[in-house]
């Protein structure tokens, strides 16, 4: 194959393995983060059990065995890596943004719109995740009643007694945005690498995402109930 080899060398730049590693890193950090997000939801979901007793036990356990102290920085690291790997796919230059937006509108194609949504939710997650992390770290450790009062926080009162429970709204939006990004992200990883029939697979992943969102909405409701049960923020279980 000498002839072919020489031709190939002259006509193509040799890229080495960088592009491969970057592509793999994008998908692998994506999978890790989806795993993290779904596990996180299950952990938060323990608030359903015994009015938060299991929730507290879990939080204490993670703290005691240094799983939280290792897990949180590790997750932050993976997110940062993911931002660099996946973010480079997003249209960056103004010119590219304009082309991508116009084309999406013109072809009006389902999966392309889903991707536009993924780029937008990525930006929102970037902001929300930082805020969320800040809240958790500055009020460490995590306790059911503390979290419950946060979620149930009546918020800023306006005239006429009307108020906006900003934490509740924050978590509700964060939940939707995060699960959208993760669910469709996993879908696209499987489309890019996999053997699956993508329409059927899409429905399976949508099903899982809806279940996770339901757990999340239920958990938010449970937090407001726990807050009612223990009206004093510091109240022990």
């Amino acid at each position: 194959m000498e002839l072919a080899k020489n031709l190939q060398k002259t006509l193509n730049k040799s890229y080495g393995k960088t592009d491969l590693y970057v592509d793999l890193a994008e998908s692998i950090t994506g999978i890790i983060l989806v795993g993290f997000l779904w596990m996180h939801m299950l952990f938060v979901g323990t608030i359903y059990i015994n009015n938060g007793a299991l929730f507290n036990a879990l939080s204490e356990g993670l703290d005691k065995y240094y799983l939280a102290q290792i897990g949180i920085p590790a997750t932050v690291l993976v997110i940062l890596l993911h931002i660099f790997m996946a973010g480079r796919r997003a249209p960056m230059r103004l010119r590219d943004l304009r082309i991508a937006w116009r084309l999406s509108k013109m072809i009006n194609h389902y999966d392309t719109w889903v991707w536009v949504g993924q780029v937008i939710t990525a930006l929102l997650i970037g902001i929300f995740a930082s805020m969320h992390l800040w809240t958790i770290m500055t009020t460490w450790p995590i306790e059911a009643v503390k979290s419950a009062h946060r979620v149930a926080e009546p918020g800023v009162a306006f005239w006429g007694g009307f108020s906006i429970p900003y934490y509740l709204i924050f978590y509700a939006i964060f939940l939707l945005v995060g699960e959208y990004h993760a669910g469709f992200g996993l879908y696209r990883i499987l489309v890019k690498w996999g053997w699956f029939e993508r329409h059927k697979m899409g429905w399976v992943l949508k099903g899982i995402t809806v279940i996770i969102i339901c757990i999340g909405v239920g958990a938010l409701y449970m937090f407001t109930q726990v807050a009612k049960m223990y009206p004093h923020a510091g109240g022990a279980l």
């Binding site: 970057v22 072809i107 999966d111 991707w115 696209r188 990883i189 489309v191």
Partner: peptide, 9 residues
């Protein structure tokens, strides 16, 4: 091969 984002249009 690694440039495709998987939009399937």
């Amino acid at each position: 091969a690694f440039g495709c984002v998987g939009l399937m249009a």
